[in-house]
């Protein structure tokens, strides 16, 4: 288990290095950063001055090493637009997005896993059809449209839920549902497929031949094996929700990372964008690593791989 954990950690670090290289090269993606900073009316002299001032004249390797060491110590540079440390900006927005993502994930999992299990227990019945219909509808509805529909009914017509802000947990209901429902179909279908496969397996027959009660057969013997691919998917989806909450955060006016990313792209605030991409990518890596570890815990055969 320890060997496996170390191996996966090595891979994760390598991926992180690759991501940091890509993120760093973002600065040069849109041309000369000094020229972009100086603005359109700048003279050649101004540009040269800015290039020197921000260190863009040094060799790329030196710039990268400098940027990376700073990033590792939590220094993501300075937003010239907001005149604030990037780290401060990001860490004031991050908790909101994390909370939203977590709520959305909890919503998605508590809806999709039981539904997937039910559908697998009774394939081709009403429950199964209902679950599949929900999956198709869920996958087909764009989340911005779904969010607006919810705002219209729950927020405006029935006045049940607040439509903006982050003051209390009630504010998070609609955004979480809107963000989470998009993940539900994939998780639901994967759970259903996995359960169908596992329920038909020999060791489930063995478990029943031992006289085990249906809940034990279902949850101890079947779900644990069926859930393994779901864990990997959920980890990726959680990362996706953190990064992909731009639309939802914008609609519900939630001051999170997604909203910040959108703002920064609009005003070309490169250091902020860079930091967001790096942080989200690292979240992905950490989540994938955690999912791998959880799977290794669930399935002893993975540990030796």
């Amino acid at each position: 288990m320890l060997i496996y954990a170390c191996k996966r950690l090595g891979v994760a670090v390598l991926v992180a290095v690759a991501v940091s290289l890509l993120t760093f090269s973002l600065i040069y993606l849109s041309g000369d950063p000094a020229m972009a900073l100086a603005g359109e009316a700048a003279t050649q002299q101004d540009i040269e001055y800015i290039r020197k001032f921000y260190g863009y004249d040094r060799p790329l390797a030196v710039q990268y090493a400098d940027w990376l060491t700073k990033a590792l110590t939590g220094n993501f540079g300075y937003s010239h637009y907001l005149r604030q440390d990037v780290a401060d900006i990001i860490f004031s927005r991050l908790p909101v997005t994390m909370l939203l993502g977590a709520c959305a994930l909890v919503f998605a999992l508590t809806l999709s896993i039981p539904l997937g299990v039910l559908a697998a227990m009774r394939p081709n019945t009403m429950v199964d059809r209902f679950a599949l219909t929900l999956a198709v509808v869920g996958q087909a509805l764009p989340s911005f449209w779904f969010a607006l529909i919810m705002i219209f009914w729950f927020g405006i017509v029935w006045r049940l839920l607040p439509i903006t802000g982050t003051e209390s947990w009630v504010n998070f209901i609609m955004p979480s549902v809107a963000l989470g429902y998009y993940v539900t179909p994939a998780v639901m279908r994967l759970t259903r497929t996995g359960m169908l496969e596992v329920l038909a397996s020999d060791y489930i027959r063995t478990a029943r031949a031992k006289g085990l009660r249906p809940p034990v057969v279902l949850f101890k013997h079947a779900l644990r094996n069926a859930i393994i691919p779901v864990v990997s998917l959920a980890a990726v989806q959680f990362g996706f929700m953190l990064g992909g909450s731009i639309v939802i955060e914008t609609i519900f006016a939630i001051n999170g990372l997604g909203y910040l990313a959108w703002e920064s792209i609009q005003r070309g605030d490169l250091p902020v964008m860079q930091a967001i991409v790096l942080i989200l990518a690292c979240f992905y890596i950490v989540l994938t690593y955690l999912a791998d570890m959880l799977n290794a815990f669930l399935d002893p055969r993975i540990r030796v791989a």
Partner: peptide, 14 residues
């Protein structure tokens, strides 16, 4: 009790 044909798959791998 019952013993099955396939010992390779009749025990829960987890």
């Amino acid at each position: 009790g019952m013993i099955f044909q396939e010992p390779m798959t009749s025990l829960n791998p987890s």
